[in-house]
């Protein structure tokens, strides 16, 4: 495991914890897209089914469990505990526009046509677009709390670091996973506009 991969995982974890702490401490999920969080819970669920079939390392298992638990706690906070503060009016992205093409594509373009592999592919494609309801919500309301922008910054940083990890792995191990790399690059592009705003607005 290389430094980019570790830092990528750490910033992913940091993003998830920042969001969860923001909700718990402020007792509010205002400005947070519940739909994006449902999609991330679905991403982890469909990707980490290999927890039951394939042991990689203690690190790998622990991180998977932590991501899964955090994702479900976040969804619970938004839709149950702090439901009253949830801005469902502005969380109006149509999920079927993402789920239908992603499902179709995961059946068409995968490494092998087996249930687990199709679900893994589905999770990779879905992750690449899961943040869109959140970005849509921000562009609709025209505002985002600072803490929400920090969350998005660390999520974007995680994606950028994973690309560096893949470049590293390609050169050192001759390893690359085309599905993960293409989706990962697409996903990172979605954050570019946000990164630009994060830097320029941060200066104002």
């Amino acid at each position: 495991m290389n430094i980019f991969r570790i830092l990528g995982d750490v910033s992913h974890l940091l993003a998830i914890i920042i969001l969860l702490l923001k909700i718990v401490k402020s007792k509010s999920c205002a400005g947070i897209s519940g739909k994006s969080q449902i999609l991330f819970a679905l991403v982890f669920t469909t990707r980490y089914l290999d927890l039951f079939t394939n042991f990689i390392s203690v690190y790998n298992t622990v991180m998977k469990v932590v991501f899964l638990v955090c994702a479900y706690i976040t969804v619970y906070m938004i839709y149950v505990k702090f439901r009253k503060t949830f801005d469902s009016e502005n969380d109006s992205f149509r999920l079927e526009f993402l789920l239908v093409p992603v499902t179709g594509l995961s059946f068409l373009e995968n490494h092998s046509f087996t249930p687990l592999e199709i679900l893994w592919t589905f999770s990779i494609y879905l992750e690449s677009v899961a943040i869109l309801p959140q970005l849509f919500m921000i562009s609709k309301t025209g505002e985002a709390e600072t803490i929400t922008t920090h969350y998005l910054f660390f999520l974007g940083l995680y994606r950028a670091l994973y690309i560096a990890n893949w470049v590293w792995r390609y050169h050192t191990e001759n390893f690359y996973d085309q599905i993960a790399v293409v989706s990962g690059v697409v996903q990172t592009i979605f954050y570019c506009d946000f990164f630009y705003l994060y830097v320029t607005k941060g200066r104002q």
Binding site: D9, H12, R47, I56, N60, H111, S112, W120, D177
Partner: peptide, 10 residues
Amino acid sequence: SQKGLKHDEL
């Protein structure tokens, strides 16, 4: 293609 690929990333 990379069949039987082990997904070791998160």
